[in-house]
């Protein structure tokens, strides 16, 4: 019990003093996860929208693949990317292995299917009557699409936040392709693994607290978004 109490005491001190190493790890984590999220969003939302609006061959097969990839084990992504980026791999000459760029690529791969699937569901969830209302008011096809995406905005934001939640807690892929190098590729989750192995629980607990705060913040934002989104749902079309 003393170990835990002492660990927490030291952890709070580290956070209170804004320990430089700790801050470096936190900032790198946020940089990696937010950049990956940005890439996942920029690629994922339009893909989800295209799957919803366009007639695409093998659409349902693609959606099934995306839904399956939502549960993709991060270590598998890490392994795949490691094989691609290692010296003997096809992209080895780029020298990306054990860099933050490799970690961003890995997390983007994890974020993409989440954003695609949930954005697709969000856009598809907007009642057909909204598209028709826009059309009957003279909106062009593009303007109708914009109207629908606007109506789905809260649910799309939820999708993005859900992806961020997964990325911030992810450890398998970044550990494999990042290598957990101090000051270069060490992020919150990989540092917790290392510090726990070393028995330096204070740092591990401090990082754990920060990670929990990040998760709590994400959940709080998700809650607010989902509340606003609930108001945004349109009533179903009544066929007379």
């Amino acid at each position: 019990m003393d170990l835990i109490v002492e660990g927490f005491r030291k952890a709070f001190l580290l956070i209170y003093r804004l320990d430089a190493d700790l801050m470096g790890i936190i900032l790198l984590s946020l940089k990696v996860s937010l950049t990956a999220l940005l890439i996942g969003t920029v690629a994922g939302v339009p893909t989800g929208a295209a799957l919803s609006f366009k007639r695409i061959p093998f659409k349902h097969a693609l959606l099934n693949i995306m839904n399956t990839l939502m549960g993709l084990p991060p270590v598998v992504v890490g392994l795949f990317l490691y094989l691609m980026l290692s010296r003997r791999g096809p992209l080895g000459s780029m020298g990306l292995l054990y860099t933050s760029s490799a970690m961003i690529i890995a997390q983007s791969i994890l974020a993409f299917p989440i954003v695609v699937s949930l954005s697709y569901a969000a856009i598809n969830g907007v009642s057909m009557v909204i598209r028709q209302a826009a059309a009957t008011l003279g909106a062009s096809q593009f303007q109708c699409t914009v109207a629908v995406i606007k109506e789905a905005r809260y649910a799309i934001l939820s999708a993005i936040m859900a992806a961020f939640g997964r990325l911030s807690a992810e450890v398998g892929a970044i550990l494999i392709v990042g290598g957990n190098i101090a000051g270069r590729t060490r992020v919150i989750t990989s540092a917790i693994v290392l510090e726990t192995d070393k028995g330096d629980f204070a740092v591990a607990i401090a990082l754990g607290i920060v990670l929990l705060c990040v998760s709590l913040s994400v959940n709080a934002v998700l809650y607010i978004i989902s509340r606003r989104g609930r108001v945004g749902q349109a009533s179903e079309y009544l066929w007379a």
Binding site: V129, Q132, T136, E151, A234
Partner: peptide, 11 residues
């Protein structure tokens, strides 16, 4: 224009 029975309210 056509006013549908369910108006299709924008949020």
């Amino acid at each position: 224009t056509l006013l549908l029975p369910s108006v299709g309210v924008f949020n």
